[in-house]
Amino acid sequence: MEVEAFQRLDPENFYRRFVKNGVRPDGRELRAVRPISVDVGVLSEERVQASALVGLGSTKVLAGISLQVGHPSENTPMCGMLDVEVKLTPLSSSKFSSGRPSEQAHVLSTFVKNSIVESGALVLTDLAIDDGAFAWKLCMDIVCLSFDGNLADATLIAAMGALMRLQLPGTRRIDDEIFVTEDTPTQLVVREVPVPLTCGVFDGIIIADPSLLEEELLTTHVTVVSTSEGKVCGVHKPGGSCASGKQLNECLQLCQQHAKQLTQTLAAAVRIQS
């Protein structure tokens, strides 16, 4: 049978034959991650405060941060806010539709926001202006430009890239309103660099960084977020089949190994631009 016809008619057995031999249809080893490219400051910074374009193989996402100011709410004095919105456009894949954000988009937005805030990468009190009378609100929009699987990793890496690039402009208060000044902007302090790795399980075998083709065949997947020092800041396993403790342990270790390399890539990308 023709290879393409086989793949189309019986994708599961097609894939199984590859995995048995320790390779994947795109030529990767089972635990290899696709090449990651990070470019920060790709959009003109007169318009959007910080931006980052991340390519994970042929999955591409673009993150942009725009700034707003407001009064901190009474429950959280001194605290600014991070608002993340992931947009899965019909442009990037025929699987997404226009109109209201899908459930998947909401899940990704929450995942990115929690990974950044709960890991302590961004401390919300750092966003206070004028001793807490005002605070910055970071509006982070992440747009998927090309979808080829593993959006969780791509969105969080892009978010971190943009965040590490972000500079908060100088401010002056006039009456009861904040204005931005020409003063030298201050670099936002990013205290941790949480980076993700998604692994999938197929026939009990762990596969790192699944592509779109693979995502449809995997029985479950696990996303682990970790820092370069190996601190685990989040694990996300959304249902699917059961994974054994041993498998989860393996995922944790893979992520910790991957994190070292990835944080270096991010730091290098930010350094080149500044």
Binding site: Q68, G70, P72, I174, I178, T181, E182
Partner: peptide, 16 residues
């Protein structure tokens, strides 16, 4: 946080 707005550039010091 409610009523957030995009801050504008500050006017020159002398004609605030």
């Amino acid at each position: 946080m409610n009523n957030c707005y995009k801050p504008l550039a500050a006017p020159a010091q002398n004609d605030a």
